[in-house]
Amino acid sequence: MRLLQALFFPPEQPGGVSSMIPYLQERFTSPRWEMELFSLPKRIRNKGKEEIKFHTFDWTQYGESPVVQKYIQTYRDYLWWTRLRIHKPFDLIHAHHPIAGLAMRSVFPDTPLIQTLHSSYERELILNGKIAEGGPEHQFLVSMYRELEYCTDQLMTVSKSFRGYMAPYVDRHEDIRVLPNGYDERRFKPIPHENEVAQLITVCRLVPAKGLDVLLRACAELKKQGVEYVLHIIGDGPIRPELEKMAQQLGIYNETIFYGYTLHPEEFMPFFDIFVLPSRAEAFGSVFAEAALSCLALVGTEVGGIAEQIENGVNGLLVPPNDPVALAEALAGVIADPMYRYELARSACERAKANYSLSRAVHELKKMYLEYANK
């Protein structure tokens, strides 16, 4: 069977897609399976010119918005690039971004199409202050869910929480399949170690949706209480200068290290003790699974897919979003008790291996691919 994995970003870009899709290829290399990856290069801009029409709504009512205009132009570019680069047929296409899925359906209308939604673009834009809730951009983006439902043979997402989020925007939310990402265990090599001072690590794009302002305030509270720690922030983004200034103002700059973007943080994640990320929203939260497989204690917020990964007090700790005091209390507890921290980390690792292995994801995908290719 010839399979195409249609991405938006190239697979080396950070995020949930890059944590799984590139590692699928070797699992699908056999006489029975052949898989290719396809994405839109960053250099392709403003190439597409064709008129865009959707089946379930009229996008032009939102067309004055620059955000909507950019989205539509990117769709045109993806269509242009797809027609230019793909000439041979595939037995099935699995898309991992709305633009990729819509373009593939347009270019290959007779090929079975599976669409996985890994995150909520509109929710991120709202939390990051880029668009207004209920505004034209928001209405346009949530309208895309019904369009995708109309155009694809199977709509999928990565958590039950995100399926519930989509329910108001589609006709048959109960038909959406849930398949969390899978992670190749060989990438993660937990290392026994003893850090005299607890080492906290977070890995994310530096945007308001990730709640790093809450984390810095929580760390300031820890310092006020005399709790020793070092916070390592891996990632880059538009609010990095603001966060660095905030760390200085809170008096925790000496305890905080900003690394910038790193391609493979899992290579040195095992040397830390506690993974913490107080996100304001997460469809799944791939980095929690990666931290668990690195055998770190987990501290996260009760939102989206994070709350599906962590059972509070069993394999990590959950706190309300936007609550630096509660976050500081949770962190203080795992910092003060290394044995408790170890038990949380061990439970997190065991659960992640059981629920989020790449082998499990591959098994489920193969069954589904055969189901739709044989229809």
Results as ranks from 00 to 15, higher is better:
24 L>Q: 11
26 E>H: 15
26 E>F: 07
28 F>T: 03
28 F>D: 09
28 F>Q: 08
28 F>H: 08
32 R>K: 09
33 W>G: 07
34 E>T: 14
34 E>K: 14
36 E>Q: 14
37 L>M: 13
38 F>G: 05
38 F>N: 09
40 L>R: 01
40 L>V: 05
42 K>N: 14
44 I>F: 04
44 I>D: 02
45 R>S: 13
46 N>W: 12
48 G>S: 11
49 K>N: 13
49 K>S: 12
50 E>M: 11
52 I>E: 08
52 I>A: 05
52 I>T: 12
52 I>F: 03
53 K>E: 15
53 K>C: 10
55 H>Y: 09
56 T>L: 04
56 T>S: 09
56 T>H: 02
56 T>D: 07
57 F>Q: 07
57 F>K: 08
57 F>R: 08
58 D>P: 04
58 D>A: 13
58 D>E: 15
58 D>R: 13
60 T>I: 08
63 G>Q: 08
64 E>C: 06
66 P>K: 10
66 P>G: 11
67 V>Y: 14
67 V>L: 09
68 V>Q: 03
68 V>T: 10
69 Q>L: 12
73 Q>L: 03
74 T>R: 12
74 T>A: 03
75 Y>A: 09
75 Y>V: 07
76 R>Q: 11
77 D>W: 08
77 D>P: 01
78 Y>S: 07
78 Y>K: 09
78 Y>M: 14
79 L>I: 15
79 L>N: 06
81 W>P: 00
82 T>H: 02
82 T>G: 02
83 R>F: 06
84 L>M: 11
84 L>G: 00
85 R>T: 15
87 H>T: 14
87 H>L: 13
87 H>R: 15
91 D>C: 07
91 D>Q: 10
92 L>N: 01
93 I>G: 00
93 I>Y: 00
93 I>T: 03
95 A>T: 04
95 A>M: 03
96 H>M: 04
96 H>R: 06
96 H>I: 04
98 P>F: 12
98 P>M: 10
99 I>K: 00
99 I>T: 10
99 I>P: 00
101 G>F: 06
105 R>V: 00
106 S>N: 13
106 S>Q: 14
106 S>C: 10
107 V>R: 01
109 P>K: 03
109 P>T: 02
110 D>Y: 11
112 P>M: 03
114 I>R: 10
115 Q>I: 13
115 Q>R: 09
117 L>M: 10
118 H>D: 04
121 Y>Q: 13
121 Y>K: 15
122 E>M: 07
122 E>G: 01
123 R>D: 12
123 R>Q: 15
123 R>Y: 02
124 E>S: 11
126 I>C: 01
126 I>R: 01
127 L>N: 11
127 L>F: 03
127 L>V: 05
127 L>W: 05
128 N>T: 03
129 G>E: 05
129 G>L: 04
130 K>R: 14
131 I>L: 11
131 I>W: 05
132 A>E: 15
134 G>W: 01
135 G>S: 07
137 E>T: 13
137 E>H: 04
138 H>S: 14
139 Q>H: 10
141 L>V: 07
142 V>H: 01
142 V>E: 02
142 V>G: 03
145 Y>M: 01
146 R>W: 01
146 R>P: 04
146 R>Y: 04
147 E>L: 06
148 L>S: 06
150 Y>I: 05
151 C>L: 13
151 C>S: 14
153 D>R: 06
